[in-house]
Design a protein around this nucleic acid. Structure first.
Lengths: 201, 201, 201, 201
DNA sequence: GATGAATGAGAATTCATTCAT
DNA sequence: GATGAATGAATTCTCATTCAT
């Protein structure tokens, strides 16, 4: 099917008409998912937002889920790259840890609508649920590998707990449940992670 | 409307016919929500599971959401009581903290299906979203009040982060994303909380 | 079935319990028909207004229509008696004509709710439609018999037209489409009828 | 929404597919309302009569009432134009009056089904009730303006009474309560109106 | 006589998806 | 490539009527 990049917009209208239509649909869907949520979003809303027609929608995507998959996979790729880039030294290099958390936060902010919709899918327990679980696991494993010897702490659970905390805090921020200044949150989060992992204290 | 108690289950069939039917619907809905999720659950599924009719359903609940509200409010009450019972001394009295975490975990396990559906509603951003946010805030405030002086840690964020961690970990356990033995998880979680809050170290 | 008078209330509680319940249902139905209309009135509304139960309703009436029939027949009887009492001399005895019109107006006012519901049934074209048409015809024939020789006017149509006018004007008054003082309306209506029929002018 | 003209019928199939479908629905609804009445008519009946589907119905109309509104407004426009065209000289120019009554009768005949349904709506007291009352008032005012000085007759009531008579007589004819030859009815009606208004007699 | 819980056949409405143009 | 009218299965909700107590 149509697998050209849908959002890499730097080719200023050079893409074929089809590619542009597809991209317009993806962008529109992002907006609609953000406003209505995944389940409540109607194909009708999406094609209206994209100023195109039902027929066109099905020209590019087999159904709503398939469109969402295209969106989600982009974000997943970004998050996986992020997981792999977790600094080797978490405690020793606070600056690197903070920078990494900043990247993560940016990603959450940029892809907020998709991530929120994803959380919804996750609850439904379908394909995206699994994708989400995999991502979590990947984050957990990346963290686990960098974890210093922790006197008495179960490393697996610690990793999971940290991921949960980081991920949820970003999610709350995204959903508007908490409203913290970006730098305050980053400082504090860095503190918390370091505090938990620094066995020298 | 018919608002008799639906769960006071210890009266073995003594309740009036109506009360029993209502309770049957609540139980059936719990099962269906667990299996299908809140959004995907059909009134049809619920009445089939309760071995009753559509008409009867609407005799007791205005719609699916209202039924879920009845379910959710029970759980909310329990969780709020729990928030209020958080031990005064978190670091000094490990045993009390662990016991409290155990209670929380039990609640999560007992009301798993409802909580999972709740998370779903939360994403949709409707009334339960707010109820959930309130609950979170309550947990956060309770924790904040018990927090020892933390050298350099932002207390508010620490509280939120801890709640996020505890809550999510329980949720993961519930959703099957992680599978940890109950006592291992409790020990580890206690460790993590104490470690974060213990300023004597 | 139960054919005792339902509204002749002067026997102060002497009626059997059943008769009282039946009367309560009839009164309640009158109120509900007035508020909601015939079609929109629910058995539920009626039994609520009568402070009784669904089961009881069907103890006394086979269905909603049957109850309405009981109500309508009382009014029909009154209107038929009225038709038969039309004064012999319409033009010569203005006072008698005015008195008769006053009786008709009173009847409309007293049985307003039922008559309004009746008009509704009439449109639906069911049994009451026929009953209503019969009544109209009876009024028309009564009028026709008293009509003086009218130079050049078709007597049948004149009678029908007069009935239509009288009936409609009362209906408008009832429905609130026009709001005229009772005596003004009676005087004017008397004038109009006399003017139309007085061939001496 | 789809608001293209639905009745401009002289373009024999030139209209777009949508416009034709919409027109088919309107025609079908007219038939169904005539047969079953407004309240009893089912969307199902209408789409069956129009040989289309439920989905299509809701593509063009929000619901049954909205469809009826479209129908009723056409007729209302015609009746309002008629009210405005009432001849200036009612008594002096019998021929003009008769012609006007003929037009009114034709309108009633042409739009019979809609008018009958309208009467039903009027009883229910909803939006069409008001529209109908307005129309009546308009007829009344038009008549009032043309009314000659009437020795002793209340002009307002006379106008209302005449409108009631004319309107009802046409309605009876339509509903089949009376069955008069068209020219006989027109002659008689003209006679009655002139007789009532002619002060020279 | 009276009750009110239970029923289930309908009715309205929505929305993903198809397909002729 | 694009369109948008048409579809109909799926779903929610209502309400007259029955019936066990």
């Amino acid at each position: 099917m149509h697998e050209r990049s849908a959002t890499g917009g730097a080719d200023g209208g050079r893409r074929s008409r089809g590619a542009r239509t597809r991209a317009r649909l993806l962008q529109a869907a992002t907006r609609v998912f953000a406003e209505r949520g995944l389940e409540a979003a109607r194909v009708d809303d999406i094609v209206a937002a994209a100023r195109t027609s039902h027929g066109t929608f099905y020209l590019y995507f087999g159904n709503k889920e398939e469109l969402f998959a295209a969106l989600a996979e982009e974000v997943a790729a970004e998050l996986q790259a992020l997981a792999d880039d977790l600094p080797e030294q978490l405690v020793e290099d606070r600056a690197a840890l903070r920078a990494w958390l900043a990247r993560l936060t940016s990603t959450y902010r940029t892809h907020g609508p998709v991530l929120r919709a994803w959380t919804e899918a996750e609850v439904h327990g379908d394909a995206f649920g699994r994708l989400g679980t995999d991502l979590h696991a990947r984050f957990g494993r990346a963290l686990l590998r960098r974890l210093p010897r922790l006197d008495g702490l179960d490393p697996q659970l610690t990793a999971v707990a940290l991921v949960a905390m980081i991920e949820r805090l970003n999610y709350y921020q995204l959903a508007g449940h908490v409203r913290l200044r970006r730098d305050v949150m980053l400082d504090a989060l860095t503190d918390v992670v370091v505090r938990m992992l620094d066995s020298r204290r």
